[in-house]
Nucleic acid binder design. Structure first.
Lengths: 228, 228
DNA sequence: TTTGGTGGCATTTTCGAAATTATATGATAA
DNA sequence: TTATCATATAATTTCGAAAATGCCACCAAA
C-alpha cells in the first residue's frame, strides 16, 4: 500500500486514516465513535482523536450530538439519492464552467485522470471481484471528477464537490455490496470525457446526469427528479 | 439583546458567540485567530477555544492551515460572487421541491417568516441606518430562505443552503458597508413569497435568481453567469 | 405491573501544561 | 549590502487528568 498521508502532524495523518476507513466501510452506519476506544486503534490521545472526529464532522463524514458524542451517519438509499442529486447539479455546473474557461493544460490533465481511472476500471472489469482495488478506484474516480470541474474558477464549488463526493461515497459503501462499481461505469466516464474535450457543455451535462442517475437506477432507487 | 444561545455546554454557547461575531464583521478578513488571545475575550481555556474554531472551519467561517493556526477567510467580490451563484442554484432547486411537496403548514410558516422579515426590513427602510437592527435582519433573512426550502425533503440540501448563506453573509459584511441591505430587497422577498404561495416553481426560481443577482449588481460585480 | 427516583458507571467536556514546530531577531561571513 | 545561520520568542499541537453530564440497572412506592 502506498503512503496514505502527506501530513507531518499526528492529527493530520490521523485525519487521513480516519477518512480512509470511514470511506471504506470499516464502521457501520449509526455506530458510535468513542474517542476513548478509538485512541487504542490509532495510538493517539483521546483529545487528538476528538479533534480528528470534529474535523470529520465538518466534512459530513461523522455526526456529533451535544453531550452524546460522535457517530457514523445513518445510511439509506434516500440519503444517497439526495447527495447524488446535489452532485449532479454541482458537477454539471462546474463542468460547464470548466468547458468555458479551461485551457489546453486542463484538457491534458482531464485526459490523464481519465486514463488512470479507465485503467483501474479495466482491471476491475476483468476479474469478478477485486476488493483490494476499490480504494484505488475510489481515488481515481474522485480525481477524474475533480479535474472535470477544476477549471471552473470557483474554489467554493470545488470544495463542495469534494465534500459531496465523499459523503455520497460513504453512503455507497454502506448500501452497495459492489461499492458502487458497475461495468457501465466505464463507457459513462468515457462519454463525459469526450463531451468535455469536444467542449460540448450540454452533452457533458447530459453525460454527467446519465452517469449518476444510471448509478441510482442500479441500486433500485427512484430516478433523479425530472424537471417538472 | 435576547439570549444568543440555547446550548447548555460551554463550548456550544461559545460556538454560537463566535459565529455571531464572525457574521457581524468583528474580525477583519485575513486576520489571525489565536486561541491563546481569544480565550481572554470569551473566558474559556485555549483548548475549548480551539475546538470552537475547529467547528467553524467545518462551517467555512474560519480557515485553518496545518501548523499555522486559524484565520478569518479572505474576502473579495469574486468569492462573494461564487457563493451567491451556488446559493442561487441550491435555493432554486430547494424551492422547486418545496413547492412540489410542501403542504398548507409549510405555506403558513413561509408566510410567518416573511411577515417577520418584512417587518424588520420596513424599519430598516424608514430610518437611514440602524446598525443595531442588522443582526435581527440577518436572522430573519436566513429564516425566510430556510423555510423556503424546508419542505424540499432533502436534509443535505438544507444543510448546504445554511452553510452557503452564512459564508456569503460573512463576505457581505466584509465587502458592503450597508451589510447587504437595500430598499429593493423588500419587493424582491415579496416576489419570492408570492411565487411560492402560487405554486409557480418557474416564477419562484426567477424571483430567487433576480433577488440574488440584483444584489450582486448593486455591489458592482459582474452579473451571474447566464446559461450559455 | 407500572411509575418515579437513586446510585454507580461510562462517556463527554474542559482544562492546564509539556512537547513540537513556526517566526522573528540579530550576528557572522561573503 | 546581501545572504545564511544560530538563537530566542511566540504559536500550535498533543497529552493526561479532573469535572460535568448522560445512561442504565436497580429498588421502592403506588
Amino acid at each position: 500500500m502506498t503512503q496514505l498521508t502527506s501530513s507531518t502532524t499526528t492529527g493530520g495523518s490521523l485525519l487521513d486514516q480516519m477518512r480512509f476507513v470511514l470511506l471504506n466501510g470499516q464502521y457501520l452506519p449509526g455506530e458510535k465513535l468513542r474517542p476513548d476506544h478509538l485512541k487504542l486503534s490509532f495510538g493517539v490521545s483521546a483529545g487528538t482523536m476528538r479533534e480528528a472526529l470534529l474535523r470529520l464532522v465538518g466534512e459530513g463524514l461523522v455526526e456529533v450530538e451535544e453531550q452524546r458524542g460522535f457517530s457514523v451517519p445513518a445510511a439509506s438509499l434516500a440519503r444517497l439519492a439526495e447527495l447524488t442529486k446535489l452532485r449532479a447539479m454541482i458537477e454539471s455546473e462546474g463542468a460547464r464552467l470548466s468547458i468555458q474557461n479551461g485551457d489546453l493544460e486542463w484538457e491534458a490533465r482531464l485526459n490523464a485522470a481519465h486514463y488512470k481511472l479507465s485503467h483501474i476500471e479495466q482491471r476491475l472489469n476483468d476479474s469478478a471481484s477485486k476488493p483490494e482495488l476499490i480504494p484505488f478506484w475510489t481515488r481515481a474516480d474522485n480525481e477524474f471528477h475533480e479535474v472535470l470541474v477544476d477549471a471552473c474558477g470557483s474554489s467554493s464549488l470545488r470544495e463542495m464537490r469534494s465534500n459531496l463526493f465523499h459523503r455520497a461515497r460513504q453512503q455507497i459503501v454502506a448500501c452497495d455490496p459492489n461499492f458502487g462499481f458497475r461495468t457501465e461505469t466505464v463507457p459513462e466516464h468515457a462519454d463525459i470525457l469526450h463531451a468535455a474535450l469536444a467542449r460540448d457543455a450540454a452533452a457533458c451535462e447530459l453525460a454527467i446526469t446519465a452517469h449518476l442517475s444510471s448509478f441510482q437506477n442500479a441500486l433500485n432507487v427512484e430516478p433523479l427528479n425530472k424537471s417538472s
